[in-house]
Amino acid sequence: MPLSTNDVKHIAKLARLYLTEAEIDEYKDQLSSILEYVQKLQEVNTGDVPELQHSLDVINVFREDVIEECAEDARKRAIENFSSRNGDLLETQSVWM
């Protein structure tokens, strides 16, 4: 089933992607044709086939619950990447308006 313009707008909203009208048109057709292609999966009978969650027989990988400090150098470098800061804090617009 081909996607509608509203479907594309809805997905863009979910994905937090600003799209131009031209992009919305383009993606509508391209995504529809990709989705049509992947429909072929429905041919496969997968009744009680397990989902492949992890390729190895690794279920959980634990380590001791010990706090490891972040290297000061790494901390500084991370802060330097912020788009806007107040001291060492990341500054943003308010979350709740």
């Binding site: 863009a12 994905a15 992607l17 600003y18 992009e23 391209q30 990709i34 943003t92």
Partner: peptide, 23 residues
């Protein structure tokens, strides 16, 4: 701000795949 930064920052193929996955 999220939408603008992502919409302007990512190129067409990346956006296409994000859209596909989100859908």
């Amino acid at each position: 701000t999220y939408s603008r930064s992502r919409g302007e920052g990512f190129g067409p193929e990346v956006k296409r795949r994000i859209m596909l996955g989100s859908y």
